[in-house]
Simulated scan of single mutants.
Amino acid sequence: MSNLYTIPIALLLAVLCVNCEPLNRAYRAALQLESGITIISSTSQGKKGLTFVKEAHLVDFGIDLVGCRNWSDPNGMDCNAYSGDTLCTERRPVLCTKVDNSPRPAYIILGQGAAMPAYFYAGWNRGHIATTVPVQGSQFANRAAVDAYCAQSFGTGWNVAQFHDGMFISGMNGTTYSGASWTNNAKNQQSGGWHYYSYGDVRNDIRFWVHIKDQPSTCWAQ
């Protein structure tokens, strides 16, 4: 069959028979062989990425709490660290960070924790955060591309923020392991997750793209 007929028929069947996978695959393959055109699969179109949100700003310290969910918002949503929570075709700011080893301020950690102690969920990222303009998560091929976008937006040393950026020292709270004590015990710092504090005052009206290194829940490759 000539290209004149193969391509229209393949397109028609690929559109009308989206649930007929064997036939659909066959005609998509025929279309690609005849025309070199690649049809994007529905699974790639439904890819989701991980996002964080601003939860609070502590004026006394000039720091933000960012993380999975803002519990003060009755309509807030949870993040999904395992399979993503926001379609990658949606536009969200990228949460960027610059780690400069700033000592932890003496913020108070409340609550009893959950699977881990409370300080695991209230780590310190050792620097600053900022947000870019909203962009599609799908525009980035890999983490390096997101890092480059943060550096382009804010300067050298800025990278995409990560799920595990918050660091903690066992038993830290208030003045315990803050300031010089935090710095002097750097060897005891460990990675937390889900929420953390950082210098900054980012927007609170939208969620942000973030990276996670050990799950397939980012819009881009590792």
Rank of each mutant, 00 (worst) to 15 (best):
I40R: 14
I40T: 15
S41L: 14
S42G: 09
S42H: 14
S42E: 15
T43M: 10
T43F: 08
G46I: 14
K47M: 11
K48F: 13
G49Y: 06
G49I: 07
T51V: 04
T51P: 02
V53E: 03
K54E: 05
A56H: 08
L58F: 12
V59E: 11
D60C: 07
D60G: 05
F61D: 02
G62C: 10
G62D: 08
I63F: 07
I63D: 03
I63T: 05
D64Q: 06
C68N: 10
R69Q: 10
N70S: 01
W71Q: 06
S72K: 03
S72Y: 01
D73G: 05
P74K: 10
P74W: 07
M77S: 13
D78S: 14
C79Q: 07
C79P: 05
N80P: 11
A81E: 12
A81D: 08
Y82E: 15
S83A: 13
G84Y: 12
G84V: 10
D85A: 13
D85F: 09
T86N: 12
T86K: 15
C88V: 14
T89M: 11
T89G: 12
E90Y: 14
R92H: 04
L95V: 06
L95K: 02
C96N: 03
C96Q: 04
C96S: 02
T97S: 11
K98A: 04
D100V: 14
D100E: 10
N101Y: 08
N101L: 11
N101T: 07
N101I: 04
S102E: 09
S102N: 04
P103E: 08
P103I: 09
A106T: 00
I108Q: 09
I108S: 03
I109A: 02
I109E: 00
I109P: 01
L110F: 09
G111T: 03
Q112G: 14
G113A: 09
A115T: 13
M116D: 10
M116S: 12
Y119V: 11
Y121C: 01
Y121N: 01
Y121W: 01
A122R: 07
N125Q: 12
R126T: 10
G127Y: 04
H128A: 04
I129Y: 02
T131G: 00
T131W: 00
T131N: 01
V135N: 03
Q136A: 06
G137M: 08
Q139K: 13
F140W: 13
F140R: 06
F140K: 07
A141H: 09
N142I: 09
R143N: 03
R143H: 04
A144N: 14
A144Y: 10
A144T: 15
V146H: 04
D147K: 02
A148K: 12
Y149T: 05
C150N: 02
C150V: 06
S153R: 05
G155Q: 00
G155D: 01
T156R: 00
W158H: 02
N159C: 02
A161L: 04
Q162K: 14
F163S: 03
F163V: 05
F163G: 00
D165Y: 03
G166Q: 06
G166V: 07
M167Q: 10
M167L: 12
M167S: 07
F168I: 10
F168K: 10
